[in-house]
Simulated assay, not measured.
Amino acid sequence: MIHPSRPRRRPGPHALLLFCAGWLTAVLGGTCQAAAANPVDLYLPDAPPLSMPGPATGHGIVGDATLKAAALAGVDVNLILQPWPRAQLSVRDGSNHLIIPLSRTPDREAHYTWIAPIMSMDRAFFSLGAPVDSFEQARKTYRRIAVGMGSAQEQKLRDEGFADGQIYPVKIGENPAQLLLLGRVDAWFNGVPETRYIWRGVSDRPLQMSPPLMNTDLYLACSRVCDAALVQRLRRVIEDLRNDGTLKRIADAYLDETSGSLAK
């Protein structure tokens, strides 16, 4: 539940505080409590092991870290699952909406309030054939590359000059691993921990990986218009969780090996 560090400024603030704290609490207390209990919307994709909306097996590395930080900060959250491009627009154009796991990239920088990094993530090309070692080689080798729609890695391919026909955007939550197995795409450009997590549940065929060719921090972010007290409270708690090793323990619980390093 959100507990602002000081009451919001409204007409007649001293009178309102007296009403809520004094003998008129019985009359107005319900209204004050209801306002304080409003949850903050938290947008996330179904992108294991980073974030998962379902409660059965946890909410993923960034999801679990965010929910733990929110609980410690006294912030009640309402989980919202939307297609990733729409979720980004909802948060960007709204106010006081949270979103995870959002890569901090130059094209997004001005559109969000960046609360704190949870972890950093490498991206690479994955294929069933011989791996490439550069973007240049990938442009020459792959006819069609699966990539998450609206993701930072989709934008990276466009920035690196890949033709529109080479880029095959898929909705986050769909299974590009199956597309790779069926030969509908030649490669998959994606985060290392997410790809390894998904692949082990799909096939035991060897999956070839290029060297990491992209790295960004995955953030808990907020709308550009975001309550400063909320931002500071969450930022402080996440740093505490980083310093006491909690973030690393959460990541280790999902990953068999270190395929994503914690942001420093």
Results as ranks from 00 to 15, higher is better:
R235V: 06
I118L: 09
G201H: 12
A37L: 05
N78W: 11
V27G: 08
F162P: 02
S259W: 08
A34V: 06
A116G: 11
V225R: 10
V132N: 01
P49I: 00
T141K: 11
Y197M: 02
S210W: 01
K248A: 12
W188H: 06
S120W: 00
A37H: 06
V192Y: 15
R200N: 14
N243M: 06
P169G: 02
A47Q: 14
L98T: 12
R236S: 13
D252K: 07
P101I: 12
A124R: 07
K248T: 08
A65G: 05
V75Q: 06
E194T: 07
G148L: 13
A263G: 11
L18N: 13
M149P: 09
P48T: 03
H3C: 05
R235K: 15
I118T: 03
A177H: 10
Q166L: 12
V77Q: 01
A130Y: 09
N96C: 04
C226Q: 06
T195R: 06
D204H: 07
Q137V: 00
D46N: 09
Q208E: 14
T195D: 03
S95H: 15
L218D: 05
A73W: 15
P106F: 08
T57E: 14
G165K: 12
A37V: 02
H14V: 12
T25D: 15
L89W: 07
Q178P: 03
P48L: 11
R233Y: 07
R233C: 04
P53K: 01
Y254Q: 03
L179Q: 06
V62H: 07
R143A: 08
R104M: 01
P83Q: 02
G173V: 04
C222G: 14
K68F: 05
P101Q: 15
C32F: 15
S223L: 01
A163Y: 10
D93V: 02
G94K: 07
G183L: 07
E154T: 00
A70S: 11
G22Y: 10
I250K: 03
K171E: 15
A36R: 13
M214Q: 05
E160V: 02
P7Q: 01
G191D: 11
G22L: 06
L50F: 09
G191P: 05
V75F: 09
I118F: 05
N96E: 10
L72W: 11
P39V: 07
